[in-house]
Design a protein around this nucleic acid. Structure first.
Lengths: 201, 201
DNA sequence: TTTCTTATGTTAACTCTGTTTACATTATCG
DNA sequence: CGATAATGTAAACAGAGTTAACATAAGAAA
């Protein structure tokens, strides 16, 4: 009763791998268990992926794509520069909260090395390009001096850093909103902290 | 030729474990390799530590202690509130850059569960207490309304988030200073981004 | 069609890991 | 001294990633 070529092993593996990853993270994902769970021999995954890193890379690629898509959608919908940066920050943190394992996978050191997976590198580059384009597409177009441009860039990095820090600290459970505040509002409050300054240092 | 009780196995293991950890991270640390490297049987480490997590916990504890010490030193030396937050941020990121693996260990998910290692929990609590005390010890003492206090707290979280984000992005190689800027200045520039705002949103 | 090649699947092995068990030795303390 | 706890060992177990040798199915070429 040869069940050879039941057709779609690669996709099934990928799907199940992603589910396991969501529940248990990269360390909890075992190729052998995955194979057993898929009802296929323990060596079969190696016919479809370049070992464990290969599977992680495949998942990471789709994660990068969804991430980039979300950022792009948000960026396209907002007009003014400041609002766009704020909305991007919210989307960035939102993605991390909705898909913490994916977020960790694409940023953490469990991510397979980019130089060994060109498609992964492309996906990563694209995601960061989206981020950078959205952040540097200022309203007053091209009317900046060099130092102004440098300041804008620095500001973008600072915004990115804060969003990234919030994302990490929230999904690692180090910070959490007070009982009477919604998570979204909490995040927005942190992201907007710059803008509400009233007193001088 | 019984070399039983050569005296200091625990410390030797710990030291070597820390070195391996610095070079290769938690995944690269193998108890068996560690034992062989120490010249002791492969089961010996289990006499001194509660398995791999036990060793990681021990290293994490000392990491937390050094981290807290550094923050405390800095906080004690700075007078004004704003300056202190800035200096703490710099120290925070500085620690991450000097000891990236330690930083990852105490914040990442490879860290053994706090509720299984009370001393680890204590070390962690202490470190974050230092951070929080330093950040909330305002100059104009106790003369704040509730909303002022809430704002101050929010601001502290925002500062922490940014410092954490910078630390992560820098040690993961996602952001780096321009060629003509020192790393320290780069970090300080990002941390201080709030304070330099001149234009209205 | 038949045949050759490639893709896909399997089994069995190898090496490494974490961990535990049973046993041996040493140190310590009554 | 002798009993007990601490520390060491070897041997085993289960699970992991990976590879090699082999088997079969599918598709292209003749």
């Amino acid at each position: 009763m040869g069940k050879y070529h039941h057709g779609d092993v690669r996709n099934v593996l990928l799907q199940k791998a992603e589910n396991i990853l969501i529940d248990e993270g990269p360390t909890g994902l075992s190729l052998r268990r995955l194979a057993r769970l898929t009802g296929v021999s323990e060596a079969a995954p190696y016919r479809h992926f370049d070992g464990k890193d290969g599977i992680l890379a495949a998942v990471a690629i789709s994660a990068f794509e969804r991430f980039a898509q979300k950022l792009e959608d948000v960026a396209a919908r907002i007009d003014t520069h400041e609002d766009r940066i704020m909305a991007l920050g919210a989307a960035y943190v939102g993605f991390a909260i909705e898909h913490p394992q994916h977020f960790r996978l694409i940023f953490g050191r469990e991510r397979p090395p980019l130089d060994q997976y060109p498609e992964l590198r492309d996906a990563a580059d694209n995601a960061f390009d989206v981020l950078q384009r959205a952040v540097t597409s200022v309203d007053r177009k091209a009317e900046m001096t060099l130092t102004e441009a440098a300041t804008a860039y620095n500001r973008a990095l600072a915004a990115w850093s804060r969003a990234h820090g919030i994302a990490m600290l929230v999904i690692d459970g180090m910070i959490a909103p007070p009982a009477d505040i919604e998570l979204d509002d909490f995040v927005l409050g942190l992201l907007a902290e710059d803008l509400n300054r009233t007193d001088a240092a």
